[in-house]
């Protein structure tokens, strides 16, 4: 799939924002480490709102006709995309009410604040689920058609949110082990769950060019795509990544997204490293942003079969096409057919 920055930022930032809101509610519910101060709660909820807004604004950039975006809330009965929109919009008044209550009453431990905080967090978590289901409900893309997708979105959103929360505490208090330990646990859980996903998508799928054309008793090879240059279909679906490059990206995801933030949080909690603790959320966002890039670029739509590409980690191509594809790969371009936007 085309790894559009708009959708990468949407899922990355809004997931982190909803995760942060959920962790603020959890920390205040159980008064973990004496709970957050009202001011810190207000700042963190404002930060969650900022992250969600960044995601939502960037998502409109991938609409070709944004003037009709208001209609996207109408088909919530069938469409996960519409449901995501409905819950994301519902999140705003609740989060703003919670933020206002905590800020003006200077209390985040009374019943109204706890109720508002938990309801807001719940709506955020439901939005993450809808966001995951947007991808998981598509039977056309086997790398996405798995329950691991919404599960990963949860794990990564909560881990990112808790990393931000823990960093904000570590900036003010040294030796804040409780928050840092929760953040590290969530990062480890997210890393393990992502590893399960990477193993899961390694298996080939059932759909082949044979079932796609109905000629199931013999070999089917593409002779001609029928067009001399790229089409919407090749632009949107033909991105792929070689196994070696994907492996290097995965190492970067694990080092930047999980290992480095854990190491920085541990160092900050035990020894105190001042403002350098800010590298923990920054590196986590970079690493998990790379994870989201891989999530899109590794996904192979079944329509690629009609263009002669077989299922597998690296689509296998007809020999006639393979030479051209390898040449572009050597030149550092990943596209089988160059984007018709890159002239």
């Amino acid at each position: 799939m085309n790894p559009s920055l708009a959708v990468i930022f949407l899922t990355l930032f809004s997931g982190a924002g909803f995760g942060l809101m959920a962790m603020v509610a959890v920390v205040n519910d159980f008064a973990i480490d004496g709970a957050l101060s009202p001011l810190r709660t207000a700042i963190l909820v404002a930060l969650a709102l900022l992250l969600v807004t960044m995601g939502m604004v960037s998502s409109t950039a991938h609409l070709a006709n944004p003037k009709n975006a208001w209609r996207a809330f109408t088909r919530w009965r069938t469409s996960w995309l519409a449901r995501e929109g409905v819950f994301a919009v519902l999140f705003y008044p609740l989060a703003i009410a919670y933020l206002g209550w905590v800020f003006f009453t200077n209390s985040d431990r009374d019943n109204v604040a706890l109720l508002l905080g938990n309801v807001t967090a719940l709506v955020g978590l439901v939005t993450i689920f809808c966001q995951g289901m947007i991808y998981a409900c598509l039977r056309t893309i086997r790398q996405w058609h798995t329950p691991l997708v919404p599960a990963n979105f949860y794990a990564l959103g909560l881990a990112l949110g808790m990393t931000v929360l823990s960093t904000s505490r570590l900036l003010a208090h040294r030796h804040d082990l409780a928050m840092a330990s929760i953040a590290c646990s969530l990062l480890v859980a997210a890393a393990v769950m992502k590893a399960i996903y990477y193993f899961w998508i390694g298996a080939p799928s059932g759909t082949t060019l044979q079932t796609a054309t109905g000629f199931t008793r013999g070999r089917v090879r593409l002779l001609d795509q029928g067009h001399t240059f790229g089409t919407f279909l090749t632009h949107e679906f033909s991105n792929c990544i070689s196994p070696g490059r994907a492996l290097r990206f995965k190492v970067a995801v694990y080092v930047l997204g999980f290992l480095a933030p854990i190491a920085i949080l541990l160092a900050a909690a035990h020894a105190g490293i001042g403002f350098a603790v800010l590298f923990a959320p920054v590196l986590a966002f970079v690493g998990i942003g790379l994870e989201r890039y891989l999530f899109f670029v590794e996904a192979q739509h079944v329509v690629n079969l009609y263009h002669g590409r077989m299922p597998g980690p690296l689509p296998q191509m007809h020999p006639a096409l393979r030479a051209g594809a390898e040449n572009t790969a050597r030149a550092g371009k990943r596209r089988l057919v160059p984007s018709y936007e890159e002239r």
Binding site: M1, A69, R71, T140, F232, E236, H301, V302, Y306
Partner: peptide, 15 residues
């Protein structure tokens, strides 16, 4: 009514 989000093209296996 279409807002050009491409989601339907993702759901279509036949391109």
């Amino acid at each position: 009514k279409c807002m050009g989000c491409n989601y339907c093209s993702w759901a279509c296996p036949y391109g």
